[in-house]
């Protein structure tokens, strides 16, 4: 299987996945999120999606450093060697 997109996980997402960097194969952001939820299980899925199945708004998703909200959101296309970062808000001080 081609594992081409580099994923960087931050905050609690990295804690739950037990890893801060991985690779996954996907064509769009929404495929990528689904693949991550399948790989890292129910608790990860619950952190990623709200009860309506939408990506939670406090987790920012960057495709090659660009916020996916200002691209095509979940439909944003991704290509081999792209880098996708999932960065939740944190509040500790």
């Amino acid at each position: 299987m081609r594992m081409s997109i580099k994923i960087l996980l931050y905050g609690n997402l990295a804690s739950i996945a037990g890893i801060s960097s991985t690779n996954i194969d996907a064509n769009t952001v929404s495929q990528l999120l689904d693949a991550l939820a399948i790989r890292y299980g129910e608790v990860f899925r619950e952190k990623l999606y709200d009860s309506n199945g939408k990506p939670r708004r406090f987790i920012n998703i960057y495709v090659n450093g660009k916020d996916y909200r200002f691209l095509k959101k979940s439909d944003t296309e991704i290509f081999p060697n792209d880098e996708v970062s999932l960065i939740p808000a944190v509040s500790g001080g």
Partner: peptide
């Protein structure tokens, strides 16, 4: 940057999740 806060309890704070003392 963050239009909406996380639901309560979704993101642990330092008291719940711990923090490396040097980090702050």
């Amino acid at each position: 940057l963050y239009p909406e806060p996380p639901p309560p309890g979704m993101v642990p704070n330092c008291a719940e999740g711990g923090v490396l003392g040097i980090l702050p």
